[in-house]
Design a binder for these strands. Structure first.
Lengths: 242, 242
DNA sequence: AATTTTCATTTGTCAGACATTTAAAAGTCT
DNA sequence: AGACTTTTAAATGTCTGACAAATGAAAATT
């Protein structure tokens, strides 16, 4: 592990990269302990603060975790699905909010990906997944629900649909697509009538999954995608005028 | 922007969280300049080093960028698709390599997602995308190619397929799925015969896309998925014995 | 008016110190 | 000997103060 001493600045970035490469390439294995900050500062010939800044960078990416005390130090972190989900969602949400992605584009991506899951979900859904979906659909039918709560429940419903495919890699990849659209959906005001339509489609989807009917699930997902898109367009058009 | 002074440790994490929340919620806008490190250290009542560690964390997530000099400082960074791709790929690759994900699971996820793109790609593919796919297929037919180069070209082919859908959100979401499987594919030795089959299917896919035939594209993708999976299984089975 | 120089501001790095946490080692008592 | 307490060493977390380097704006000079 060495760095280029001629490169003028950003020593901490270079050190972070050096360690990151060692982790990604497998030179440093999961749960292996890195040298202490003092040792690293000697190895790289920099101050301890610089090493610390590098370690903070790696910690922010969940590549390492640190522990205080006598047997503490920095350890190569085993990236859990949980952590990866979180990063995926944060990044996706920011990407969409900062790049003025149209609702249509995000919606298209989301439903295309969900339709990819649907056949697997129809095959593998458990009673548990169905129960979650039914419960969320039921919640969505409550009259007093705020728009935010309605959207949050919508996300939960679709997450259950995705998780039913029983493929953690798929769930991870779709976490971003499903969650990141929530802020965009929150810009829509749902009338009682439009909620009714959506809830009905959600119930149809749950029915289709219960019957393990992949084709019908797909059909209803397409209908939901189309309806959501039309709804958004009319809402945004109305806002433009008013 | 304030933090809990009673919470004993990890001040820099608290400060990072505080600033991150301000960015995610939109309180701090894109390209807006944060207070200088000295000012932040006064606001949060911590030392400059602690503030710096917090800023490094945010920098590692591409939430801010820093610039030296008189008018420099830390600025809220507009997350580009490029940066998001990179993070997505790093995280996905690590997730797969650290969690002993089976080839079958990763493969299933990848092809499910690609099939989601295919109809859109068939509709929107440009001559450019086709040219890239043809070129990669041609490269894959070269006899002297190493397994690594073959896999890299395979990834390039599939990226072109995904990009042809002309939906940046979709491209971003799939970047991880397509790229992260490369290390797993690199564990496979491709015989001349199996390469031939794959290249033929790649050509078929390109043909189908050229003809804007979504059904045929899907059919060939399914065939490719199935063949890849079988190939991997036989390779791993043979390795187990030998 | 154009160019050069100076200067103030800000991040990047360093050195040294102390606080806090933690587990192991040493000591003490029953 | 075994159980409990105390000490100690190692590690991260934080603070202070300093200097280096970059950089744009202001001032001075031609």
């Amino acid at each position: 592990m060495k760095i280029d001493p001629d490169s003028p600045a950003d020593l901490s970035a270079q050190i972070a990269k050096s360690i990151r490469d060692a982790i990604v390439s497998g030179t440093l294995r999961v749960d292996e302990r890195l040298p202490s900050e003092t040792e690293l500062s000697e190895q790289f010939d920099v101050s301890r603060s610089t090493v610390r800044e590098a370690l903070k960078r790696l910690g922010a990416q969940s590549l390492i975790r640190t522990q205080r005390g006598a047997t503490g130090g920095a350890f190569v972190n085993k990236l859990t699905y949980q952590e990866a989900y979180g990063q995926q969602i944060t990044t996706s949400t920011l990407l969409l909010s900062m790049n003025a992605v149209s609702f249509a584009t995000a919606c298209e991506a989301r439903y295309a990906l969900e339709r990819a899951c649907a056949p697997l979900s129809a095959q593998r859904r458990t009673a548990d997944h169905l129960a979650t979906m039914r419960a969320e659909a039921h919640r969505q039918a409550q009259p007093g629900l705020t728009d935010e709560a309605f959207c949050a429940s919508d996300v939960a419903f679709h997450r259950a649909l995705v998780d039913a495919a029983d493929n953690p890699v798929l769930s991870y990849q779709l976490a971003g697509a499903v969650e990141a659209i929530e802020p965009l959906m929150n810009m829509i005001t749902f009338t009682a009538r439009s909620r009714e339509t959506i809830v009905a489609l959600h119930s149809d989807i749950a029915d289709a999954l219960e019957a393990r009917d992949a084709e019908k699930t797909d059909e209803k997902l397409v209908a939901l995608a189309s309806y959501t898109n039309d709804l958004a367009q009319s809402v945004f058009a109305a806002r433009q005028k008013g």
